[in-house]
Amino acid sequence: MHRELRIDDPDAFYERLIELHANRSAADSQLINAKLILMMANEIGDRGVLDELLRALQDDSSKDASG
């Protein structure tokens, strides 16, 4: 799992991500997000990495750290 930035031009990516959800209902957005997660998971492919990501959020240590 990478904790350091790997995305080129993160502001543009973030803008595009928000744009994807523009004018959508919460339910619709949730469906889009679910699709995105499944597609990204398939791109990552590596079960070890996916498990690590899930574990990181299961324990949600980032929330504690940002306090």
Partner: peptide, 12 residues
């Protein structure tokens, strides 16, 4: 959320 993932998989 479980239903959203289910429908997402089906739609994809």
């Amino acid at each position: 959320i479980s239903k959203a993932f289910r429908d997402a998989a089906l739609e994809l």
